[in-house]
C-alpha cells in the first residue's frame, strides 16, 4: 500500500473535483477562487506523486506550479478585476488550505526525504506555495 499515492488520489477526488465544480458555476469571483484552490491542490498532488512513484525529478512540476499557479490567478484578478469586485467571492477555505495543507504535505515529505538538496527543494516549493497562496487570497478578497 503506497500511502503517498493514496493521499494524492484522495486529494484529487476530494479536492480537485470540487474545485472543478466551483469553477464551473457561480460568479466569476467564485470561479477564480476555485482556480486558485485547484493550482494549490495540484501542486500538493504532484509532490505526493513524485514521492509515491519514487521519482524525485517529478518535483520539478510542483516547482513550476508553485510560481505559475499564483501568476495565473493574478492574471485573472488583473483582467477580470471589475467583474470580481461586483460580487466579491468568499475565500474562507483558501487560507486554511494554504496554511495547513502546504505544511501538512511538505513536512512529511521532508521527513521521508531526509536532509539534502531534495529537501531544500521541497522547502522552497512549500515557501513559494504559502507566499503565493496568501498573496492571491488577499488580492481576491479585495477583488
Amino acid at each position: 500500500m503506497n500511502g503517498w499515492l493514496a493521499a494524492a488520489c484522495a486529494l484529487v477526488v476530494g479536492g480537485l473535483g470540487p474545485s472543478l465544480w466551483g469553477a464551473a458555476r457561480g460568479t466569476t469571483g467564485r470561479r477564480v477562487v476555485a482556480q486558485n484552490m485547484a493550482t494549490l491542490l495540484l501542486c500538493l498532488v504532484l509532490l505526493l506523486l513524485a514521492q509515491g512513484y519514487g521519482r524525485p525529478s517529478y518535483t520539478d512540476l510542483a516547482l513550476v506550479v508553485c510560481v505559475l499557479g499564483p501568476a495565473g490567478t493574478l492574471v485573472y484578478i488583473r483582467l477580470l478585476g471589475e467583474e470580481i469586485e461586483k460580487h466579491p467571492p468568499g475565500a474562507r477555505l483558501l487560507t486554511p488550505a494554504v496554511t495547513i495543507g502546504a505544511p501538512a504535505t511538505v513536512v512529511p515529505l521532508c521527513v521521508a526525504t531526509g536532509p539534502g538538496r531534495a529537501m531544500a527543494k521541497l522547502l522552497v516549493i512549500g515557501a513559494l506555495l504559502v507566499a503565493g497562496g496568501l498573496v492571491t487570497t488577499r488580492a481576491l478578497r479585495r477583488g
Partner: peptide, 13 residues
C-alpha cells in the same frame, strides 16, 4: 503586499 510579492517572485520564477 502584491507589489512586493511580484518583485520577489520575479527573480525566483
Amino acid at each position: 503586499p502584491l507589489r512586493r510579492y511580484g518583485t520577489l517572485a520575479l527573480p525566483v520564477a
